[in-house]
Simulated assay, not measured.
Amino acid sequence: MAKVWRVIALALIVFFAVGPLLWMVLSSLRPADQLFVSDPSLIPSGFTGEWYREVFASDALQWFANSLIVAVFATLISLVVGTTAGYAVTRFTFPGRRLLLIGLSVGYLFPAILLLVPLYLVLSSLGLVGGLTGIVIAHVTITLPLATWLMKSFVEAVPRELEEAAWVDGLGYFRGFLRVTLPLLRTGLATTAMFSFILSWDEYLFASVIAQGDNVTAPVAMAGFVTSFDIRWGAIMALSTLVTIPVVVLFFVLQRYYEKGLTAGGVKG
């Protein structure tokens, strides 16, 4: 009976987690007359692709290209800087180390909207508002602290004795890091890359203020289907489904690294 109740509990968790996604996908295929009925059914009586045609008739490819460029560059910057910063605060003692760690932690205590105004003023003074570069910098302010903390935990899980042996062999700090420590951080790099990519890919607040013209990202473009006279629910469901696909694919590709990373990163720290 204990196993039965465990299965039932897990089934309910999966239902509440997957149910909204399934409803979103099926709603993107429903005809317009079935979107607003008093007794909706999970499986529509008919399917249509008109909502996807409406999405692709707009600038959907440009929106996805913008989101991909921003997410990839924000992820790469966060990985490079976060890995080196996590290694530095773990392996070395320097003035301001504790202040840096506190600053990274305190940054997450405040809602992102409080950072929006000062960040916008800085980007505006640099002439970066409206371009993809400004969006990348804004997203790095979100992804970099998380990447640093994650990589710090993964670096702590690597035995220091391996690096000391490399130093004795004459590799030095930098080459020892590249040849010994970095290959052992593959799981951490994959996990951190996935989190950083998802954070940037789904981010709306900063991108909605900084993006302009043809540089809007897919989550921002989704709001364009909500007007003063109409809400294109079918198109919104179709675009939401398309936005979700890259995240799901990325998760399945990096799933084994993600599962290992959840445990490997928590060995120490």
Rank of each mutant, 00 (worst) to 15 (best):
G172R: 07
L184A: 12
L239R: 01
P20L: 11
V106A: 11
L250W: 06
M222L: 15
D59H: 02
V247T: 12
L150A: 12
L242I: 13
I210H: 01
A193F: 08
M194L: 15
G269F: 10
D33I: 12
I245Q: 04
I69Y: 08
A221G: 15
S125A: 14
V129H: 03
V80H: 06
Q212G: 10
L79K: 02
D202N: 15
I142S: 03
V18E: 05
Y257D: 09
R232L: 07
D33T: 13
Q34H: 09
L68S: 13
G224D: 04
Q255E: 09
L185Q: 03
S105M: 14
G224P: 01
L79S: 02
P145M: 10
G82W: 03
L115P: 00
L115R: 03
L123T: 07
G172I: 06
L101G: 11
L121S: 11
R256H: 14
S105K: 05
Y87I: 11
V129N: 05
L68Y: 08
V248Q: 02
T263Q: 12
G134D: 02
F154Q: 05
L12C: 13
I13Q: 07
L128R: 02
V136T: 13
L42A: 08
R256M: 09
R179E: 13
N66M: 07
L116E: 10
S208H: 04
I135R: 01
T84E: 03
T48D: 00
E156H: 14
T241C: 05
G96P: 09
S200G: 10
A238G: 04
R160T: 03
L10M: 14
R91L: 14
F16I: 11
E54I: 06
V80E: 05
I77E: 08
Y258C: 01
L29E: 06
Y173K: 14
L162V: 10
W167F: 13
L99A: 15
T148G: 02
D214N: 15
R179D: 11
L242Q: 07
F92I: 08
G131A: 09
A88H: 00
A166Y: 12
L29S: 05
A264M: 13
K152C: 00
F15L: 15
F154Y: 14
L104N: 06
S200W: 09
I245W: 03
L79Y: 02
I210E: 00
G46T: 12
I210G: 00
A165S: 15
S78E: 11
G176Q: 11
A221R: 08
A165R: 13
G170T: 12
A85Y: 04
V155L: 03
S125W: 07
V89P: 02
T148F: 12
S41P: 00
P44G: 08
S28W: 12
V140K: 04
A165W: 11
F15N: 01
T227A: 09
G103S: 13
V226W: 00
W167C: 02
E156T: 14
P44R: 07
L250P: 07
I210M: 01
K3I: 07
D214C: 00
I113F: 09
L114H: 05
L79T: 02
A60D: 01
S67Y: 04
G269Q: 07
N66F: 00
L99W: 13
L171N: 13
L178N: 08
W201G: 04
A235V: 02
W167D: 10
L42Y: 08
